[in-house]
């Protein structure tokens, strides 16, 4: 890992000095140098992630598929989502939109005498043990992600956006980033807000995000992989997460779905939303069987998402897909 980190560092330096820094000075944006340099590391790691995921998961999907498809036509749009996210374009846009708000809020609160909670102050050993800190932050952020996911299915307006993610009938490792941009922005605010609130250090944040993203891509893969009776309860597997996307199971019932965990199924066990049924079901939303459309191309999907949101927010109108799928 250290050698890989060093190699990423060299690539980061070279790219920054050869292309990014000259562009920033040319555009009179030298003050963004720190941010640009930092972002470049995310971009390089994102590119590596895509390469590794493709090299490992694509052959697995070809040889051990959970579902056999005639073609991969609908997968192409998910590839675009993945590149937009993992290469940092969407996160960077969010960063520029959200940072002024966060900074203003923090500055105002501090002037008024408020201080944010800091996990390192509450538990001093966290600051001195990088591994313990990494695991603790990972667990806390995963718990927060579990509840974000529950709420995405619970609130009609949020589901109207999140439904896009579940509308993929050909779920593959590319599907993880198939999200409505508004849903993504809320999710990023949620994740970054919790990370800021508990004081996740930047180096740890990078590792946590990479680890989470890799496992999330794996859990969406179209592969016939279970982790066994015990393993399925320790880490989210492709089998476990496929149940969450399964037509007729993943978005229905009293909790409006099951298997919400992102990394650790223990949250589903504790909050009684786990379903360990041994099946590899088709994915999608029930109303798609009756002809509901979620779009095939990026812009169409984004537009239809906004329309569903408008419907969900209109008081006297039926709320669209959730009412059907959650029946």
């Amino acid at each position: 890992m250290s050698r890989l980190g060093d190699a990423v560092g060299l690539a980061q330096t070279w790219l920054f000095e050869a292309a990014v820094q000259p562009a920033l000075y040319w555009l009179d944006l030298a003050s963004l140098s720190d941010l640009a340099y930092e972002s470049l590391e995310w971009l390089i790691w994102g590119a590596l992630e895509i390469a590794v995921l493709y090299a490992i998961l694509r052959p697995l999907e070809a040889h051990f598929p959970a579902e056999r498809w005639r073609d991969r036509r609908l997968v192409g749009t998910d590839v675009l989502y993945t590149f937009l996210h993992r290469l940092g374009i969407v996160p960077l846009a969010f960063f520029f939109l959200l940072t002024p708000v966060v900074d203003w809020t923090e500055g105002t609160l501090r002037l008024a005498g408020f201080r944010p909670f800091n996990l390192e102050e509450a538990l001093p050993w966290v600051a001195t043990s990088p591994l313990a800190a990494f695991l603790l932050y990972l667990v806390v952020l995963d718990l927060s992600d579990y509840w974000r996911h529950r709420l995405q299915h619970r609130f009609e307006w949020w589901w109207s956006l999140h439904a896009l993610h579940h509308s993929q009938r050909k779920m593959s490792f590319w599907t993880d980033n198939r999200n409505h941009l508004l849903d993504d922005m809320i999710g990023s605010l949620w994740f970054a807000g919790i990370a800021l609130a508990i004081g996740v250090p930047p180096g740890q944040f990078l590792l946590i995000v990479i680890a989470t993203r890799m496992l999330e891509s794996f859990s969406h893969a179209n592969v016939r992989i279970r982790f066994g009776s015990i393993g399925e309860r320790l880490l989210v597997s492709p089998h476990y997460h496929r149940r969450h996307h399964a037509i007729g199971f993943g978005h229905e019932g009293p909790s409006r779905g099951c298997n919400f965990a992102v990394l650790l199924p223990v949250w589903d066990v504790i909050f009684r939303t786990a379903d360990f049924t041994r099946r590899f079901d088709p994915t999608g939303i029930r109303d798609q069987l009756a002809g509901a459309r979620y779009g095939e191309r990026f812009l169409e999907q984004q537009w239809l998402g906004l329309r569903r949101l408008a419907c969900a927010l209109r008081p006297r109108q039926s709320a669209g897909s959730q009412s059907t799928s959650a029946a």
């Binding site: 600051a127 004081g199 250090p201």
Partner: peptide, 11 residues
């Protein structure tokens, strides 16, 4: 030679 790396606060 770098003798050690001490974790401190952020930034």
């Amino acid at each position: 030679a770098e003798l050690r790396r001490i974790p401190v606060g952020k930034e």
